[in-house]
């Protein structure tokens, strides 16, 4: 554990909680892509199956349980409790164009051809592109609420901090995981355009294009 990873994890947690609170407090999921949230729920589910097979630390276990719980709570709020406010017409990204190639890639390129390892690899690849339906939705409607931009900023910051974490771990522990690093770089790059707008527009709600 190093400072980049810790702050990265906390930033990730902040993003998840910001989104949950935004939906809960406003009683609305307008402007939020339910498809991205389903993808994140799939990401956490397929990655954290190792909860059942190995114990790493109390921190690790708690965070995994919280991430999974929040992901499903968010999906529940969007598709059940506040589904009347869900803007499905604008959430039109074809997720099969992500899930199918990513599934194929996970089978082809992985550390070990085993069930859990392929699911872990699938989750890493899928996470790197899971935000695309959300970015697509924002580009389609041309706007995002301020709180939604904070959510996206925290989510992008998390992966950017993980890149520093991997540099740290390479130098000080000789550890590197090429699959996680490449996917993490892809994921971070997808946020670059957003980061630029977020900083230059001071995080205000704005018209947005990608």
């Amino acid at each position: 554990m190093n400072i980049f990873r810790l702050i990265g994890d906390l930033s990730h947690l902040a993003a998840i909680i910001i989104l949950l609170l935004k939906i809960w407090k406003s009683r609305s999921c307008a402007g939020i892509s339910g498809k991205s949230q389903i993808l994140f729920a799939i990401v956490f589910t397929t990655r954290y199956l190792d909860l059942l097979t190995s114990f790493i630390s109390l921190y690790n276990t708690c965070m995994k349980v919280i991430y999974i719980g929040c992901a499903y709570a968010t999906v529940y709020l969007i598709y059940m409790k506040f589904r009347a406010t869900y803007d499905g017409n604008h959430d039109s990204f074809r997720v099969e164009f992500l899930v199918v190639p990513v599934g194929g890639l996970a089978v082809l390129i992985n550390h070990d051809f085993s069930f859990l390892e392929i699911l872990w690899t699938f989750s890493i690849y899928l996470e790197s592109v899971a935000i695309l339906p959300q970015l697509f939705m924002i580009s389609k409607t041309g706007e995002a609420e301020t709180i939604t931009t904070h959510y996206l900023f925290c989510l992008g910051l998390y992966r950017a901090l993980y890149l520093f974490n991997w540099i740290w771990r390479f130098y000080f522990e000789g550890f590197f995981d090429m699959i996680a690093i490449v996917a993490g770089v892809v994921q971070t790059v997808l946020y670059c355009d957003f980061f630029y707008l977020y900083v230059t527009k001071d995080g205000k709600g704005y018209r947005f294009s990608i």
Partner: peptide, 10 residues
């Protein structure tokens, strides 16, 4: 070299 497939990151 034995690689241990225990992913300790979130």
């Amino acid at each position: 070299r034995e690689f241990i497939y225990q992913h300790d990151e979130l």
